[in-house]
Computed example of a mutant assay.
Amino acid sequence: MATSIFDPSKLRIVATGFGPFLDHQRNPSWEVAQAFSQAVAPHFSTDCERLAVTYAEAQHFVERVGYEEGHLLVVHFGLSGRRDHVALERFAHNCRGETRDETGRDGWPDHVEPGGPLALQTLLPLRSLAAEIDARLHEALDLRARVSRDAGEYVCNAIYYCSLRAVERVRREGLPADALFVHVPQLDPVRADAVGAQMGDVLCAHLSDRQA
């Protein structure tokens, strides 16, 4: 699916960020998601949600967000404390690590969806998007953006997999939909707002160019 088949009059963009988890009492992904949503709102119908860092929330989000209606683009944001750059994730993998989620529950299966595809990928043109985001962030914040092929094995990967699985089903019905997961590093509130705003501007420009 190319983003050009979105009808701009029907397109809805949903941004999500996560709340606190493990030893991270402040999660900048939520601040990034809010700033991103504010940048997108003048151009497209937009919603923004803060999600709990649980595997159950990953599934519940997909069930309530309305993928089946089509013309939906979901952009998930999450924190990766081990990275020093913004990472646009190309793939979600059907795997689950051993780290407990915020419910404290263990004993989860090894897979996000037993029997599901090993990996799913967004069809957004990440190389061009990342290049434009990288240029903007490097100039404004001395921060880089890169395409990544590994979204990890935690809730970030799980919600991305669930979203892309829903996208896959919707596309079979001939309706446009897509999803993207973006990992952000530790950011103070000012830099988090700037990252979200720049990413929102880039995405809107991209979608507008594709509709022209």
Results as ranks from 00 to 15, higher is better:
residue 64 R to D: 07
residue 99 T to A: 14
residue 135 A to F: 02
residue 63 E to S: 13
residue 115 G to V: 05
residue 42 P to T: 09
residue 73 L to C: 12
residue 98 E to Q: 13
residue 145 A to T: 11
residue 122 T to P: 03
residue 48 C to N: 11
residue 28 P to C: 08
residue 145 A to W: 03
residue 98 E to L: 13
residue 144 R to D: 13
residue 111 H to T: 14
residue 36 F to L: 09
residue 137 L to W: 08
residue 135 A to V: 01
residue 118 L to I: 05
residue 154 Y to K: 06
residue 23 D to Q: 13
residue 45 S to H: 12
residue 110 D to I: 02
residue 85 H to S: 12
residue 24 H to Q: 13
residue 124 L to Y: 01
residue 58 A to K: 04
residue 123 L to G: 07
residue 90 R to N: 02
residue 97 G to P: 07
residue 90 R to A: 06
residue 102 E to P: 00
residue 126 L to Q: 00
residue 133 I to Q: 00
residue 46 T to C: 12
residue 111 H to Y: 13
residue 55 Y to N: 08
residue 79 L to G: 01
residue 89 E to V: 04
residue 73 L to Y: 07
residue 71 H to Q: 15
residue 145 A to I: 04
residue 88 L to G: 00
residue 84 D to T: 12
residue 74 V to A: 06
residue 94 N to P: 06
residue 95 C to G: 03
residue 106 D to A: 15
residue 156 C to A: 10
residue 129 L to Y: 01
residue 81 G to S: 14
residue 45 S to K: 14
residue 78 G to M: 03
residue 52 A to P: 00
residue 82 R to W: 08
residue 157 N to H: 09
residue 67 Y to G: 04
residue 107 G to F: 10
residue 96 R to D: 05
residue 96 R to I: 06
residue 55 Y to E: 02
residue 92 A to I: 02
residue 64 R to T: 11
residue 90 R to F: 00
residue 125 P to S: 08
residue 88 L to M: 14
residue 51 L to D: 03
residue 27 N to G: 09
residue 23 D to T: 13
residue 97 G to N: 09
residue 49 E to R: 14
residue 93 H to F: 11
residue 75 V to A: 04
residue 92 A to V: 02
residue 57 E to Q: 15
residue 38 Q to D: 14
residue 41 A to F: 05
residue 90 R to V: 00
residue 82 R to P: 01
residue 86 V to G: 01
residue 131 A to S: 13
residue 134 D to V: 01
residue 80 S to D: 15
residue 144 R to M: 09
residue 131 A to I: 00
residue 130 A to V: 04
residue 34 Q to H: 11
residue 112 V to K: 05
residue 71 H to R: 07
residue 25 Q to F: 09
residue 146 R to S: 02
residue 73 L to M: 11
residue 34 Q to E: 15
residue 29 S to R: 04
residue 99 T to K: 14
residue 49 E to W: 13
residue 68 E to G: 05
residue 100 R to W: 02
residue 142 D to M: 08
residue 142 D to Q: 14
residue 140 A to C: 10
residue 28 P to Q: 06
residue 40 V to L: 11
residue 32 V to M: 07
residue 39 A to L: 03
residue 134 D to E: 05
residue 33 A to G: 07
residue 128 S to N: 05
residue 113 E to D: 11
residue 152 G to F: 07
